[in-house]
Amino acid sequence: MTDIALQTRGLGVKYGNFHALSEVDLQIRRNSVHSIIGPNGAGKTTLFHALTGRVRPSSGRIELDGRDITDTSDDDRVRLGIARSFQVTSLFPNLTLRENLRLAAQGRTPWQALAPWRRAEANAEALDIADGVIDRLALGKVTGRLAGELSHGQQRRLEVGMAMAARPRVILLDEPTSGMGIDDIEVMKDLIRDLGHDHTVLFIEHNMSIVMNISDVVTVMRLGRKLVEGPPAQVRDDPEVQRAYLGNMITGDIA
């Protein structure tokens, strides 16, 4: 086992003639919290799409624990230990919160679910995992509520929970705090920090106070390329980063 959980070499993604991502070399250390920042259109979400297998890279390779997964399909990657949450909340709105998490836990062993005679409740492990995630997210009071009827903050937490329920080794969170109120943001910050103890966390975030406080490593992207990478303090003071952000977006202080 190497110390690197996930790495890319020369990763590039093209949409038609547009290079959304070019020559990205990333190394994500095991059980670290690694954040990706950058202005809109920097290729952050495209990078996530490539890492999870939703889009096919046009060049380069992706390795999970030293194993080449560049050509592995998205659902196979879940079984290998990569799970993600989405920037735009993407749940099963007409199913209950608990059913959403049960499905996410079942997704790790989907072949079982192909048997039309097997009862969903027969998979006690998936139910336990769902309940464990519910506890960790403090959503115990609304387990029977339809996901579409939850408040925005609850939906964002469930969105992260969906990734957790797959028991991934590497968890990718795409702007977990987007649209959240101040109170909810604090809860999410603690949750991400906590996830870093037993997962490798890679997350995209615009809220600099979160990024600067809980990241071990920050990667700054711009125009589909890696601009700077390093510990939070170093990245914050980097002149190139200041220029990329026109000096006004990095406002959060290190507490």
């Binding site: 999870t52 939703r54 998205d74 659902d75 879940v78 079984r79 799970a83 993600r84 989405f86 993407s90 749940l91 099963f92 709105p93 007409n94 199913l95 059913e99 499905l103 996410a104 079942q106 997704g107 790790r108 989907p110 079982q112 679910a113 192909l114 048997a115 039309p116 005679w117 097997r118 009862r119 969903a120 027969a122 998979n123 969906m162 329920a165 797959a166």
Partner: peptide, 28 residues
């Protein structure tokens, strides 16, 4: 009825609700 109540039937509902997410959590 058994099929719709099974874990298979409930996965079908998930696919109907949000196919992209169903694939993202690992279902072929």
């Amino acid at each position: 009825v058994m099929v719709t109540q099974s874990t298979f039937g409930r996965t079908l509902l998930a696919i109907r609700e949000n196919e992209g997410r169903a694939a993202a959590i690992g279902f072929p």
